[in-house]
Write a protein that binds this DNA or RNA. Structure first.
Lengths: 210, 210
DNA sequence: TAGATTGTTAATCGATTAACAATC
DNA sequence: TAGATTGTTAATCGATTAACAATC
């Protein structure tokens, strides 16, 4: 699977987008140096990343903020609204449903599902929890593009399998498992205990040198 | 800042640890091939990663699971219990406090702080929410090693600055901001809207080739 | 023009991987 | 011994970065 943009670049474009939101309050154009500072990277990196999106900066001036924003949005495919289904209505699933970043900027949580009958029918932030059995029709009817897995680890693989079978090609996995899936299915893993363990390493890394 | 292990390796060790937990139910030794399969990487990668930790596999046999577990735990600094303070007692902060991965495996949430007086005094999963003003004494007294920032974006930098000043060197940041900090402070960023935007890219990446 | 900043090159760096000798 | 699997090398791949000509 080769993509039109380097994966690392794709991961930084959202940072630039956020930086543009900040500078747009006071400026019309922005330099790669400013963006680099706000995104925590080098300016050469910014220029290279932006060149992939076909951006057009002006030498001696910088990038037009409005133009760049829409160019990045197009590159990331953010024009179309994207429907999200969250599986798992526990603490995390509920928090995610409430997360402002999910609602804003083209993403919309259209369904929350859980296997626990006690949770089915509950209202979370205006969305009624549905039975997990409804996953396939929900994906189909509501044209779900991204499934967020917020279940315990042992349920994650089965949910992923079903989602993939139903046509989903993008999964955001919060369960602490590495999901098996076909090559054309993209999975982003957000693993809190892994993050902690990585920080733990640095906390104790006595061999580190400045 | 140069570390004793490649950063990419550090990020994979937790996966191997989890895989070891799975295979330990049925086996005493494990091959790099098995670990690779469970972690979703190549076996050569596993062997290389493990070689950094000073592991000792046996040719023709594999790795002793118990030995490997403790070797990885040592490499990640997981022997000592690590105290965590969560800043922000909103939906996300509360969910994090309840997250099983935080409690288990050597990490312990010792404090939750919030600037909102209405939340101070509330009980979250057995921990009383404290006033954010208490951050410094809490870090000091409870020997907090990791601060988790679960505040809105506009509060994150200030919280980080104060935590760093109080001696914290590891931050897990859930706020959608790139934090400025000294070189010796490690920040892991978990950004849900960035994850979604990355998935959005792949969803629309028509130039992708198999 | 003088100053600023882009776009791109080429060098560098680091990480991945296939392959295989070593050896249990 | 024969089979399995490690540890490590060397090749490859991809990503970062300094540097600077181009040019607004």
């Amino acid at each position: 699977m080769k993509s039109s943009l380097p994966e690392a670049t794709v991961g930084r474009l959202p940072l630039y987008l956020r930086a543009l939101g900040i500078v747009s309050a006071t400026q019309v154009t922005v330099s790669s140096d400013q963006l680099a500072d706000l995104a925590g990277v080098k300016s050469a990196q910014v220029r290279k990343d932006l060149s992939y999106t076909g951006s057009h900066g002006v030498r001696g001036v910088g990038y037009d903020i409005a133009e760049l924003r829409s160019q990045i949005a197009v590159a990331l495919g953010l024009q179309a609204e994207c429907a999200i289904a969250i599986v798992g209505a526990g603490n995390l699933g509920s928090a995610l449903a409430n997360y402002p970043g999910f609602g804003g900027s083209g993403f919309k949580v259209v369904a929350i599902l859980d296997i626990d009958r006690a949770k089915v029918g509950q209202d979370i932030h205006g969305i009624t929890v549905q039975d997990l059995a409804e996953l396939e029709p929900v994906v189909d009817t509501l044209e779900v593009g991204i499934v967020v897995i917020a279940t315990p680890a042992d349920a994650a693989q089965e949910v992923a399998d079903r989602a993939v079978k139903a046509g989903v090609r993008s999964i955001l996995n919060f369960a602490p498992t590495v999901l098996k899936r076909p090559d054309d299915v993209h999975v982003r893993r957000v693993d809190l205990s892994t993050e902690l363990q990585i920080l733990s390493f640095h906390l104790h890394d006595l061999h580190a040198t400045a």
